[in-house]
Simulated assay, not measured.
Amino acid sequence: MVLLPLASGLINLLRDILGVLILPFSFMFGLGGQMGQSPALLRLLSDMGMQTQMHPWRLGIAAVLELLAVFLFVIAERLGGRIGYTGACLTTAGAIGLSGLPLGMMLIPAIVTEGVFLLCPPTPEPD
């Protein structure tokens, strides 16, 4: 429930920061005789926040999938190690696919960590 407004707010904040960073370039385009901003820069700014508003159900399902991935990662040793890590990687990949590229970038560290644990799981401690 908290992930949706947090992710949406983060993307909107990033879009605003990029808008401020692009201001000097739009000023230089104006000095060069072009009255409008670059179409590529405008498209970058306008596309960033669209996924957070167009697909709320997809984002909700992605949040549930990521919670399931965290659960599987935490209890991976009880499930048999690689089975839990494989499930965590697959559900995180599903969450990245459903949330789209801008929001999915926040989950890249999670899938890298799960992949490392999948490739070389920790050895269990002797009792």
Rank of each mutant, 00 (worst) to 15 (best):
R78H: 08
G87F: 02
L103Y: 06
F73G: 14
G80Q: 09
G81P: 07
I75G: 12
G94M: 02
I96L: 05
S99H: 03
Y85H: 14
I108F: 11
I111F: 06
C89I: 06
P109D: 10
S99E: 02
L101E: 13
M105H: 03
L118A: 11
E114A: 11
L107Q: 04
L67C: 15
V70P: 00
F73I: 13
V70G: 02
S99W: 08
V112D: 02
E114L: 12
L101N: 12
A69E: 07
F73A: 15
S99F: 06
L90F: 02
G100N: 06
L103S: 14
L79G: 05
I108N: 05
I75Q: 14
G115Y: 06
R78A: 13
V116M: 14
G81E: 06
Y85D: 05
V116P: 03
G97E: 03
R78G: 03
R82D: 04
V64P: 03
G81R: 04
L101D: 09
P109A: 13
A95P: 01
V64K: 00
F117S: 13
A88G: 14
G100W: 01
G115V: 08
T113Q: 12
L107N: 06
F71L: 11
L119V: 13
L119C: 14
R82C: 05
L118K: 05
G87W: 01
P102W: 06
T86W: 06
V116G: 08
F117K: 11
A93C: 13
I75T: 11
E77C: 05
V116C: 12
M105R: 03
G81W: 02
G100Y: 02
F117V: 14
A110Q: 08
G84A: 09
L72Y: 04
A95L: 00
T92K: 01
L101V: 15
M105L: 15
G97L: 13
R78M: 05
M106A: 15
V74W: 12
G81F: 03
G100K: 01
